[in-house]
């Protein structure tokens, strides 16, 4: 167990170092930082001075080490476009994305599991079949089209919900939250549904297929023979045993939610980190791109690590296997 954890953490660190190298190479080779920072009126002396100042005359390895050192301390340099430190911009934008991701993740997990169990138990029912068909369309619809569709229905036609922005936000310390105002909550609904829908259908289909498999298992038949109520069988015996793959997939999907937030944030002009990243790509704002890359990889690697360890903790069979080998 301990050796396994150490090995996994070692792998994670290597992944992060590689991603760091990619991010650093972007700084170094994509566009000339000096070009970006000095205007047209520059002398060779200016260029040389800035080159020494930025440490660009030092060997590659030294520069990379310095970059990593800065990155660990949250220092990613200054945005080419906004002229402010990238870390400040990221901290400003993070609450919007995190709140959105949290709400959609919550929606996806609760609704996904509930609908999955429902469609598995009422396999032949009309409602279950309708849900399954709709979910198939939901999987094929690109995220941005779902967003546009929701905007069209709820903002253009019904004029119920706002189509862009976060509404009013309240500052709690340095965290701007939209949870406390009516307009903030209203603004959250459409983006959260857009972002969570795909994950929800995925979780739902997974829970359903796992449930169908488990419901055929001997111990469920035995539970039935013992005369246990359907509810106890479905939720205590069956659902519990479907949760291992569900937790893995859900954990991995948490990362996707952050990534797909880029699309949702663009559709709804949600002022989060994803929108910042898209704008950075459009304007080739390398420091912001590199910082986002590092940030998201730390998140992904951490999530993967946790999921792996959780997997291990939940399924006792894996522990036995690991000890045997």
């Amino acid at each position: 167990m301990f050796a396994y954890i150490v090995r996994r953490m070692f792998q994670s660190v290597i992944v992060l170092l590689v991603v760091g190298l990619v991010a650093f190479s972007m700084f170094r080779f994509v566009g000339d930082p000096i070009d970006n920072m000095l205007g047209q009126e520059r002398t060779q002396a200016d260029i040389d001075r800035l080159r020494t100042e930025l440490g660009l005359d030092q060997p590659f390895v030294v520069q990379y080490a310095k970059f990593l050192q800065g990155a660990v301390q949250g220092n990613f340099g200054v945005s080419y476009r906004q002229g402010r430190p990238v870390s400040t911009i990221l901290i400003e934008r993070a609450p919007a994305t995190l709140e959105l991701a949290f709400v959609s993740g919550f929606l996806a997990i609760t609704l996904g599991i509930a609908l999955g169990v429902f469609t598995a138990i009422r396999r032949q029912g009309i409602a279950a079949n309708v849900i399954m068909t709709v979910s198939l369309i939901g999987v094929s619809l690109p995220t941005f089209l779902i967003g546009i569709l929701l905007i069209y229905i709820f903002s253009v036609e019904l004029d119920l919900l706002p189509s862009f922005g976060r509404g009013e936000t309240v500052m709690i310390g340095s965290w701007s939250t939209g949870f406390l105002t009516a307009s903030g909550l209203k603004a959250l609904i459409l983006p959260a549904i857009t972002l969570g829908l795909y994950q929800m259908t995925l979780i739902m289909r997974l829970v359903r297929s796992e449930m169908l498999e488990v419901l055929r298992a001997d111990y469920v038949r035995f539970a039935r023979a013992r005369g246990l109520s359907e509810r106890v069988i479905n939720f205590r015996h069956a659902l519990k045993n479907t949760l291992v793959p569900v937790i893995t997939i859900t954990g991995l999907q948490l990362g996707s939610i952050i990534a797909f937030a880029i699309i949702t944030e663009t559709v709804f002009q949600w002022p989060g980190v994803g929108l910042l990243f898209i704008n950075a790509i459009q304007f080739v704002d390398i420091p912001v791109m590199a910082a986002y890359l590092m940030l998201i990889s730390v998140m992904f690697v951490t999530i993967n690590l946790i999921v792996d360890l959780l997997y291990y903790a939940i399924d006792p069979r894996l522990r036995v296997d690991a000890r045997a080998t």
């Binding site: 972007m26 990362g255 990534a259 880029i262 791109m289 690697v301 993967n304």
Partner: peptide, 14 residues
């Protein structure tokens, strides 16, 4: 580990 769309965006940006 990373969603394909994110990788594509990044490569496009670079």
């Amino acid at each position: 580990t990373f969603p394909a769309i994110l990788v594509a965006m990044l490569i496009f940006g670079i």
